[in-house]
């Protein structure tokens, strides 16, 4: 179809992260981390000194890079740039909100999950009505 977003198929893509230090360390241990020739990393460690601007820039960079397929973002970080996350609607890279150690996961705040829940309720209501 002409108006749907083009989905690139790639043989190898990266997983980017914008999370707190512990989560980053864990995923780096799993082998997700990547540093390219310009010493650019595919992750951003968010601590108390990180500004919202830095997070925004990292989010924008990760979502526009072609070699990234999935962006993991801690929920409390996503809440800081909620307007960006909510306005993002491309299929690739996929934005995933993950829980972090110090902040419990709240499904109600997830932008995708709230849409899912909304649709789910609407659909179940619609299906009972028919």
């Amino acid at each position: 179809m002409a108006n749907t977003a083009h989905i690139p198929t790639s043989n190898s893509a990266l997983i980017a992260m914008i999370t707190d230090e512990d989560t980053v360390v864990g995923f780096l241990l799993a082998g997700v981390g990547n540093v390219d020739l310009r010493r650019k990393t595919n992750y951003l460690i968010v601590d108390s000194k990180t500004t919202v601007k830095q997070i925004e820039d990292a989010f924008k960079e990760f979502t526009t890079r072609t070699d990234i397929a999935i962006v993991l973002i801690s929920q409390y970080v996503a809440n800081m740039i909620r307007f960006l996350v909510d306005s993002y609607n491309k299929p690739i890279p996929a934005i995933l909100e993950i829980p972090s150690k110090n902040h419990p996961y709240d499904p109600a705040q997830d932008s995708i999950l709230s849409r899912v829940k909304h649709l789910f309720n609407a659909e179940s209501v619609a299906s009972t009505r028919h």
Partner: peptide, 13 residues
């Protein structure tokens, strides 16, 4: 954090 070089775990789409 220091030993990060290239990703060994990647995704294929």
């Amino acid at each position: 954090l220091e030993s990060v070089q290239t990703a060994s775990l990647k995704v294929r789409s």
